[in-house]
Design a binder for these strands. Sequence first.
DNA 1: CGCGAGCGTATTGCTATGCGATACGACCGC
DNA 2: GCGGTCGTATCGCATAGCAATACGCTCGCG
Lengths: 261, 261
Amino acid sequence: MSNPKTRDDASVDPRLFLQTVARTMRVLEGFGRKQGPQSLAELAAAAEIDKSAAQRICYTLQTLGYLERDAATGGLRPGLKVLDRTFDFLRMHPLIERAVPVLAELRAMTGQRVDLSLLDDLSIIYAQRLQNRRETFVASLVGRRLPTWCSSGGRAMLASLPDAEVDSILHRSDRRRFTPHTVTDLAAIWDKIRAARRDGFAFTEQEWIMGEMVVAAAVTDAAERPVAAIHIAGSLAEWDARGFQLRMGPPVIEAARSISA
Amino acid sequence: MSNPKTRDDASVDPRLFLQTVARTMRVLEGFGRKQGPQSLAELAAAAEIDKSAAQRICYTLQTLGYLERDAATGGLRPGLKVLDRTFDFLRMHPLIERAVPVLAELRAMTGQRVDLSLLDDLSIIYAQRLQNRRETFVASLVGRRLPTWCSSGGRAMLASLPDAEVDSILHRSDRRRFTPHTVTDLAAIWDKIRAARRDGFAFTEQEWIMGEMVVAAAVTDAAERPVAAIHIAGSLAEWDARGFQLRMGPPVIEAARSISA
DNA sequence: CGCGAGCGTATTGCTATGCGATACGACCGC
DNA sequence: GCGGTCGTATCGCATAGCAATACGCTCGCG
């Protein structure tokens, strides 16, 4: 996850870098791996610190509401305060507030599921999701990461990047197969990206979830760099691929354009 | 926000409490107040630390991806990594994963907006939101806080608490008016809570947003304590209050029961 | 046109703060 | 009932973080 926005590890100034802060964040990041509440020892191991340090950090985080004890198991899990930070992130983000009404309108107009994702180098992250009527199985939550190289939004954003950066991302990505339809071949992915450049939107079909297809268009900032993507997802049970692109392509392009800087 | 789960300030053991961690979190909490990216000095002031400390903390958080520089203004705002913590919170929470399919089904069945909120003493926090077709103005995001005393979900959860705790929450709350219909009188609120105990769900009408009414039922844990609430929100333009309660009351009760421990 | 207030950034020596080894009691399963 | 592992508590030491200070920059106001 060596985000270009994130400072490079090599260039960290130890005079300004606070070990305690880094350890604290590593503790909070220890939840990514396993399901269910974690023990103090597990968090210590995940953060690569000893039990004493984990004890002090967890005690403090718990005091502040960023960790909670699970009533059932007695283990630790992220606390409610985390959602306050989520809210701040969404509120302070230059795109989100502008995007929300546009997404809502897009969803009302198309009747499909509409998502907003943000680019973070090798991953995209869902920041908003507006589901459609018949979607009962919503595995995706705010904060979910998907690989840039095989998601529709990711490909749309790649299409707005210079070739060299696309190559860099594709080469650093772990291009494993998620469904039988995932396109993993480099040349084939490049074909898809060129198609997205030509059409103004990317299209993927069952590359992540079977039965699902997605059109997506990139949102760019003032410097014309892609920062986000708008997705429209539909079911193969209701649409054929060609008709879906014809119907959803123009609105998704227009929506993305309208919130670009 | 003195959550009962949060350790009491008085009983903090200074031997285990890390000042640096607390300062770091106070910096991140500095975004709550104002709109738009913050300067280093503003964050320092909000966290009540000097510029040096803020510099070290912000440098570290930025390195780790929890803060970002805003491209336009050069100011600071919460970073993408925040959404990873959101995802962890949602994934690790004992209720959320069980709740999501139930909420989706409820939304499909009723066609209304459906929310899941969590109780945090004087506030409730939205953890999931499934909007309805015609909702174009979605001011509410994940992490949004609403007052417990005047929200439908909050009243439903109050109804599941012993009288003494209800009194405590009501008295510590700032009961200001949000719309002309907000019920601020203590005795009147108690009437509403007793009605919720009788009916199994709470009902509010235009107390937070004009034109909106909400039914909500509490979700309880193994100890029968309220931890969350399911809301169904509808528009006065489409329903009358009585009909809405008759139609939405039973399904919201059933949904809340099905995810209670 | 230039002055100064405010910003972000960089450096330093001091000591309070966080460190990690250690120890204790509780709980569980082999 | 006995190791293993858990969470919790204690303590002296040195290092990690502290606060003061200084520098250059950009605005906005005079």
